[in-house]
Design a protein around this nucleic acid. Structure first.
Lengths: 228, 228
DNA sequence: AAAATTAAATGATATTTATCATACTTAAAA
DNA sequence: TTTTAAGTATGATAAATATCATTTAATTTT
């Protein structure tokens, strides 16, 4: 099994401040997982006894509302970590993590993480910063969901998706989502999301190539996301 | 000036794990502030160099949206602390804290807080838990804003407000908010909020006594908040 | 206390968004 | 390949919500 010390992912996340010794310890205890598309890496309400480090693949973090609808809260990709909030606060997981494509994930047991939190203040601080940033983004999200019309939220979401996942060879946003998933991200009916996407295409702001979306006029999208 | 060791507020928040010595140090360096109704304790984008501990009074945490509308993200009362996220992540404040009534607040300089974070893992952990809980609540909020109709969100908000602020002698929710502030909490137009409140009153679910709101049928409100 | 301002309430109307129905397309299964 | 199912698209309509206008009530200022 490959070593944590050689994994390039450690450069992208809170693990980058770990010492050689800590990474060795992680390597010895970690397990590697293959999560197939559609499977859950974490499930809302379950407890968790370790940290997930995403090597590659993409997943969505969702929450099931009391009315039975799924809300997508956040997207996760290679280099991200999952489960640290639950470990730190010693609480059950709050969100479902469902693979959007096959994922390779490493699982590092809670004990090793807690040891590093105790021994390595910088690691601890990085985890806190990660959660703080998430809180800050969540607050922005609340404000936008509450105040902005669906069209603006769609524009915002498309820009976000390109930011997170980048673009492929054809210039399309490099993630495959169903229209329903897009609708569940912006909080609207699937038909409404489809209609608004069609309008954006008709206006030449985006292009739709199968499920893939290509942003043509980023400035226009930005304006739309701000209500112009 | 009164001492932190004798302040009853220390029992209600993350400060409860501090040692006698730490509280002494806080006492020596802290300053007391009176924030008048309508004034800002913190302002979005500003940096902050300490922790605020609310002795009494209430405030709203708000965010100004790109479309100029104010979104209320959270309510704060005596016993709560503010500014720890900013201290921990070393980032500017993300929200405005505006007094809903006169407030008495203690300000503890950043240096003392960072000392305690270093020396007292339990204190550090409590701060992390506090932020984690906020993140969890924020995610719930995103989901509700995105998926639930305004009527459900209003019902939910009224229950929340009673939970947070309790009730006064007359059984009313013990906080005074304008209709506009209620609208900015649930993310709707002021007129819509007023109309829905009137409907709830007509249906005997709540009573409106001036600006004060009294919940009459809590069960009914709970059902409404879940879409029934 | 009177005047002026601000907040609350309500009707009329326009806009946004959801729902239902149906056709078409793509992907998956037999 | 044929069949079946799932996803996408679009029209018609209903429901939710915002906006504008006006009145009344409460609060603040003079």
């Amino acid at each position: 099994m490959s070593k944590c010390g050689q994994c390039i992912m450690k450069r992208f996340n809170a693990l980058k401040t770990l010492t050689h010794e800590e990474l060795e310890r992680f390597s010895e205890h970690k397990t590697s997982l293959l999560i197939k598309k559609g499977e859950n890496l974490m499930t809302e309400g379950n407890s968790i006894n370790g940290l997930y480090c995403i090597r590659d693949g993409k997943c969505k973090l969702t929450k099931l509302n009391t009315n039975g609808k799924e809300q997508i809260i956040k997207f996760i990709k290679g280099g991200d970590i999952l489960g640290h909030r639950s470990i730190l606060s010693d609480e059950p997981v709050g969100l479902n993590a469902t693979a959007l494509e096959d994922m390779h994930v490493c699982f590092i047991p809670k004990g090793d993480i807690l040891d590093s939190i105790r021994d390595n203040p910088q690691f601890s601080l990085n985890l806190i910063r990660n959660i703080s940033l998430q809180l800050s983004q969540a607050n922005t999200s609340i404000s936008q969901m509450a105040q902005k019309p669906v069209k603006d939220r769609l524009a915002e979401t498309l820009l976000n998706l390109e930011d997170i996942f980048g673009i492929d060879n054809e210039g399309c946003i490099d993630v495959v989502l169903t229209r329903e998933e897009i609708a569940n991200t912006i909080g609207t009916a699937t038909e409404s999301a489809i209609r608004l996407l069609s309008n954006l295409k008709k206006d030449g702001v985006i292009d739709l190539i199968g499920k893939k979306i290509k942003i043509i006029n980023k400035n226009m999208l930005k304006n739309l996301s701000e209500g112009y």
